[in-house]
Design a protein around this nucleic acid. Sequence first.
DNA 1: GATATCGTACTCGGATATGGGCTGTCCGAGTAACCACGG
DNA 2: CCGTGGTTACTCGGACAGCCCATATCCGAGTACGATATC
Lengths: 176, 176
Amino acid sequence: MKLGEGVEAAIHCAATLASVAGNSTMPGAALAESFGLSPSYLLKHLNQLTAARILESVPGPAGGYRLARAAERITLLDIVLAIEGREPAFRCGEIRRNGPVKLDASAYIKPCGVNAAMLWAESAYRAVLAETRLSDIVAEYAAEGDPRAFAASCAFVERHQRPQKSNPTKQTPARS
Amino acid sequence: MKLGEGVEAAIHCAATLASVAGNSTMPGAALAESFGLSPSYLLKHLNQLTAARILESVPGPAGGYRLARAAERITLLDIVLAIEGREPAFRCGEIRRNGPVKLDASAYIKPCGVNAAMLWAESAYRAVLAETRLSDIVAEYAAEGDPRAFAASCAFVERHQRPQKSNPTKQTPARS
DNA sequence: GATATCGTACTCGGATATGGGCTGTCCGAGTAACCACGG
DNA sequence: CCGTGGTTACTCGGACAGCCCATATCCGAGTACGATATC
């Protein structure tokens, strides 16, 4: 039970991108610099977010990343699942069947109670994450956070965002 | 976000030990055989449960493991924390401070909102696990599970449990 | 001066090494049962 | 027959390798911008 540290980076990057106006983009290198992370490694996580349709990428000079949809329609659950994978954390190996007494498969038609309990707990975890929108994170940061830090963040975004020629049709073209 | 498979083994073993009567014990080898697991490896997890005061171990011949307290007072959270560790899954690296603009530490007296949201979700996860007692798992298994599997499990326990001479004072003596 | 063409520089994307932790196994310390012996 | 000592065998506990995934990095494909040569 340990989340990769890429989750933290992904959430902070998404929150930063939420401050980018319109369809402007921000390069991954700028995001990495914003949090003191390795640019090459952060690209991997940003790529995962792009594959999950949370971010959009624009190649070429003046390219970068932006949110694929409004921050109100992105939840923390989306980001966590994009980074950590969609399968549940608890995987039932059905070890109850591996005992010395071999029973017919009809004895195990009922799902494993342990698995059900663990999955129920995890559904509660995911429900809370699903209730937290990215816009909530940004709003809480703007309201509760230190004004200096917020201003510095906004200035950094303003300095590194690259406006795009309005071409909303052709973006993130290929998907293998 | 992926739990080790030792959690599943630990829960099933604890549920099995809940069926052991009185202060009798059950060897780890029998528990491993009961689920088709490697005895040597299961010992590691049972040892963790013992260190967490969930199980008690009795050395020597006719020794083994038993629950340290009633199954009603053992929750799934206890077992999960004993195996996976007590620290939260999400570790905030405070990457918001690592940006190029160096601010005074007074700008970060407020806790990180991302960290708070993730920890809040995890507290919901743990709350559900804390509400599920080991006795609930056993009762659900006895009521909902297949009667044949339950009877086989009870017979296995009955065959492998070792009664102890009533000596409740001196058990699990040393703790380093 | 306007336009087509070429070169360049910047971006993302995937393929490639490395390290830590979970997995799996082994051997040693300790203890209670068992048995032999003596009283 | 009962008590005592030694042996034995069984248990747990911790120390030792192996493998897989997350981490970290690099290089290549693709694209828009800018300069340049031409009309």
